[in-house]
Design a protein around this nucleic acid. Sequence first.
DNA 1: CGCTTTTGACCCGCGC
DNA 2: GCGCGGGTCAAAAGCG
Length: 503
Amino acid sequence: MPTLTIPIYFFFLFSLCISISPNTYMDNRHHHREFTFLSSAHFLDHIDPPSIKEMDFFSTSSPRDHKNNTSSRDTNDDHYQNRDDQHDTHDRHGSPTRVIDHRVNTGLNLTCASAGVTKAENGENPETELSSLESELLRLQEENNKLRNVLDHITKSYTQLQAQLFIALQNLPQNMETKIVDPGTSRKLDVVNDASVSDEKTDQDVSVSRSNNAESWGSSKLEEQPKTTAEQLPADQIPLRKARVSVRARSEAPMISDGCQWRKYGQKMAKGNPCPRAYYRCTMAVGCPVRKQVQRSADDKTVLITSYEGNHNHPLPPAATAMANTTSAAAAMLLSGSAASKESLTNSAGYYSSTIPYASMATLSASAPFPTITLDLTQNPNNAAMQLHRVPPGHGGATFPLPLHAAASGGPHLLGHPLFFQQKLLPPQALMPLLQRQPSSMVETVSAAIASDPNFTAALAAAISSIIGVPRGGNDGNNNNSGSGAIPGSPQLPQSCTTFSTN
DNA sequence: CGCTTTTGACCCGCGC
DNA sequence: GCGCGGGTCAAAAGCG
């Protein structure tokens, strides 16, 4: 069961971290993205219209609805003037999100104070004034409740839309006939989401020479389709960007079992790290393009860093599916902002690092060729950190469909699958009270809630132990690593270092 | 004998 | 243009 829940938690937490919070509380670039979601109901035909329509709760619960109550017209006018000022300000700054406006204008006490001043200036009886203030206070409380309800509705709708968006993101590459080519680094484009295409190219890989390898791995074939190059796609329409998911795991074991069979094809000494970096290729299926790098952290040699790249073109065993879904989910979350500019990515990372308690180490690496997200599992379960490394790709057009393992392998996957919404431990709706409680600290609240959830921590611990805890040569036969020479590990690695990169 | 690992060489991108 | 570093290849060696 942990293998099912872990990806869900990762998926949803990343969803919150990457998509919701920045859209709501970050700069205007992210506001633009959220606005697109809320106003583009046609993007997903199956979305329930009422759940995604743009809502202006000011129009439904504005002070004008209470113009016959005890508050004066001046008060309402002041309130409206204040609100309009807010709108104008946001419009000038290009922020189209009403949520922001709502957050700003929730401070209705200003209106109350204004009313009090107005009535006092009119020389009314203090008791009458007190009564008016009380009634005004009640009215404002009622209005506040309405606003909360609307916010709740908006948040739920956004969550639903967010989840459906990822379904669309997963299904989109499958349906796309196009392949995106990176004009600068053709060798990097070795991953194609379409399993059939992947098989096709990898079959050619078997006998090609190294010089031809780059072509068979997607470059030349992709370039033969100039109609769909990245340069010709608007940034908003570029489906997904290559990403890397790294997992930092502290383990005394010499290797980490991730459920797949790997064959070592190279080893290099990486600069700045005395530990060698090992290169592995998935051998569970002929031509599987998935590769991973394993290296021990230079700072802490008890920490394994594993990076996964590529997309399995074959069904995965349960153990592998868990990790694949986890990394895929993380990558999907990371790439959900693939259309964003480099600035957005940079700002996002900065935002996450400052907003997400567990992502205090979020950094940007100029050397990384593509966005990288790191799942830091080196801390205790309650502090399981997901460090976000969002790296602007070196080449802006380097995009291609995100190959999600779930889509390619056809196994019992979670990502983008209805099963995702059936997860029981912590459904998105369960977070709504948390989300609306303190909107200004949504991410912190949700992160803390998830991290403190005993089910989550237990599931996380179980999953990690299932992944890491298999000692060398101790496979019970249920582990698909048993037949791999790679998993027995890189003899050069005295301890286990694991990093997963996925795209 | 077949498979895997090792390891030096090669290719490529990037920065200077 | 050159050097550096990352990534990959492939022949040789090791192992069961």
